[in-house]
Amino acid sequence: MWLVECAARSGVLVVGLFVTTGLWDWLPARWWAVGAALVLAAGYVALVPLWRFAVHRWEVTETAVYTQRGWWTRERRIAPMSRVQTVDLTQGVLARAFGLASVTVTTASAAGPLRIEGLDRVVALRLVDDLTSKAGLVEGDAT
């Protein structure tokens, strides 16, 4: 399977970021502080989701799962299929509104769950099925 791009993630992030800006306004600060915060937040809302969208990638092959996420700090994780322990599909309220879902792939390590966010629901379901069947094919206890 080759590199697949996912769609419509930024919408979720924009809404999420508007919520944070709303919270900032509640702070008792002077008008220029609020103004500066608003400008910063506007820049954040305009740029970061796009940046994030540009960075986020995922890829599944016969033997491994690979994810890339983050924006300022970029994180790339690779887990071999033989070490996959569980595959979770989660959908928050916002994600459901947009018809999206995230997939979390956990391994035996405490440090390395692989998360793929903002997938189209249908794609996510297919991915989960795909991963479970592939992980099931490999022998061993995954530790």
Partner: peptide, 9 residues
């Protein structure tokens, strides 16, 4: 059982 590469800007 896996690799993580992390890099900031």
């Amino acid at each position: 059982i896996g690799w993580t590469f992390r890099d900031s800007w």
